Simulated assay, not measured.
Amino acid sequence: MEEPLRGTVRWYLGRREEQATPFYCDPERIGAFAVAPEELAAGTDAAVFRLFVTLSMYQALRDVVITRQQRSLPRASMRVVADVAFLKQSISQHQCPTLSSVEAFEESCDVTKTRERVDCGQCPGVACHVKEATVVFNRMGDMGKLPTSAWLRLWNGGGVGTLLKRVCQDELSPTKRAALLVEHFAGVHRVGRKLATMFVSALSTPALAPGLTPWFPAVDGNELVVVDTNVARAVDALCEPGMSRTYDTRERWVREQATKIDLREFRPDLPRYSPRLVQEALYAFCSKSNRVALGDACAERTTPCSGCASVLCPFAASMEGADAVAS
């Protein structure tokens, strides 16, 4: 079913011009978590760390819920979870033995959240940045470990630039470099493959955010595919009956379909082949709550639409509910 996919890509590219700034650089959408475009373009450690934590918050809840939370948090709260300098200082000044290494931290840090109470067994009653992060995230207790895990794994001892340099030395292919980086970032506590792919591709896929992808062309994220619930449901609706419904098979399906769509037909400045852009089109089209939040005219329709890709339309009864975010 190539036509619905083409219709989705056409719809997406026709609306991208209206949103030139990616949401993660827009303070009106995510408040203090927004990364300054000039810092992101330069690829500074501080900007990349803030982007990583900001995107890692988008798990298990709808995007509109997370953006509302980020927008409501003051700068002081953002610093607790997404300011790399603040985190480095907090770790160096704390005496908790779990902070001695990433292994000790991820195995022994036992911060928990019980209703409104956040504490741990290692240093009960003692304030720390992990407990503060848990309060800021206001989710399950162990999510507060995410920023510290990221710093200990990837930013400690030279920053992410060191990792990037090593990957570029070890692997010659820019697309394979992107896949290797996804593996590294997916290892951070409570991140995983989907969020790591979203992060790496944000830094290495110019078609998504022109001028704001400092890792490209050394790292090329065009072949990466983020499979969230919206994309999974879209693939399942378009693929051949009986296809296995796993992350890998859905990812492979998007890549295969992307080979059949020359994106230059829609706009000459785009690459010929970009599964990531095709996948983003599916995500943007199928996310009902995001489209409503952005004032999409289709949300106000009272009769079925004959255009775009009706088989995937989130406002059609057949696709209702395709809006939860997979972790």
Rank of each mutant, 00 (worst) to 15 (best):
P4L: 06
L5I: 01
G7Q: 05
R10V: 09
R10N: 08
W11R: 07
Y12W: 12
R16Q: 12
T21P: 01
P22C: 08
P22F: 11
R29D: 00
G31M: 07
F33Q: 03
A34Y: 03
V35A: 06
V35K: 12
P37Y: 10
E38R: 15
E39R: 13
L40M: 08
A42S: 11
A47K: 11
A47G: 02
F49Y: 13
V53W: 06
V53T: 10
R62V: 10
D63G: 14
D63Q: 11
V65D: 12
I66R: 14
S77M: 12
R79W: 03
D83V: 00
A85Q: 09
F86S: 15
F86D: 07
L87H: 03
Q89F: 03
C96M: 05
P97W: 01
T98A: 06
V102D: 06
E103M: 05
S108R: 15
D110H: 00
T112N: 02
K113D: 00
R115S: 09
R117D: 03
C123P: 13
C123K: 10
H129E: 15
E132H: 14
F137H: 13
R139P: 00
D142G: 03
K145S: 05
W151M: 05
L154K: 01
N156A: 09
G157T: 02
G159L: 06
G159F: 07
V160G: 11
V160R: 06
T162F: 09
Q169S: 08
E171G: 00
P174D: 06
K176T: 04
R177M: 05
G187H: 05
V188S: 09
V188Q: 03
R190D: 09
V191N: 11
R193S: 05
R193W: 02
R193Y: 02
R193N: 12
K194E: 06
A196M: 13
L208T: 09
L208S: 14
A209D: 10
L212C: 06
T213K: 10
P217F: 08
A218W: 08
V219C: 02
E223K: 13
V227D: 01
A234E: 02
V235D: 03
A237G: 02
P241S: 07
G242I: 05
S244L: 12
T246A: 12
T246P: 13
R250D: 05
E251H: 10
V254R: 07
R255N: 02
Q257P: 13
Q257H: 05
A258F: 06
T259I: 11
T259Q: 15
K260T: 08
L263V: 04
R267N: 07
P268A: 11
P268F: 00
D269H: 07
R272A: 14
P275M: 04
Q279M: 09
A281Y: 01
S289N: 11
R291N: 15
V292K: 04
A293W: 14
A297L: 14
T302V: 13
T302R: 15
T303R: 15
P304W: 04
S310P: 14
A317S: 10
A324D: 13
A324H: 08
V325Y: 12
